[in-house]
Amino acid sequence: MAEVTMRVWRGDANGGDFESYSVTQNEGEVVLDVIHRIQATDAPDLACRWNCKAGKCGSCAAEINGKPQLMCMTRMDTLPEGPVTVTPMKTFPIIRDLVTDVSFNFAQAEKVPALLPPPMPEDGYRMYQEDVTRGQEFRKCIECFMCQDVCHVIRDHEGNKQHYAGPRFFIRYAELEMHPLDTNDRRDLIREEMGLGYCNITKCCTEVCPEHIKITDNAIIPLKERVVDAHYDPVAWLGRKIRRRTKRSADDAAVQPAP
């Protein structure tokens, strides 16, 4: 057992400040354990989000010593000695204490054109593991929104939220565009309204991803190539016309017998 000083940002949309708490820290504990101890003793009204406490739901993202992390997966004994600072995610408006208004992300989710698969054969679709593995990587996303928090396109320029979907949604678009059953085409939307071009591949999103999704390399860069090629390259333009035709016959592809 040890004592640790936690400097937690307390306040709301009107402002606030750091408050210091001296708390017990037991072996093996994570930051969220210590925050819970503050709630149970000194400050029952200390606001923070959490659900699973196992790194699976993505609710408890905050900035620990300035770095976006899940509070439930950050062990106290990995942090440098001395006071630990916990602040809410900077990119989103404050609701109270460590809780921010992440509705921007849910608004973006509403804009995503859904999967459009061919009609399902009676005994289900056929898809092969090698064709779904990449999509599965993106579907590991737990929606902690730390990639959105750390992306400087919106972190430093509030106004960009109007026309920029952010890394979380670029992996969502990439997943749909690479989905073996999808017949929707979102390329113009991604280029014109989702602001893919604003991303200049600094990989900050990849670095903070708690699921270790290679957001930049596996989603954003291929998506950029796909979107840009389609728009500027006359060969790709022709290819797109052909591919579209192929996509229309995806129905047949889905019911192909197994090799």
Binding site: D12, Q39, D45, I95
Partner: peptide
């Protein structure tokens, strides 16, 4: 504390 986002 207040009513807004009060876990207690």
């Amino acid at each position: 504390g207040p009513r807004a986002y009060n876990p207690g």
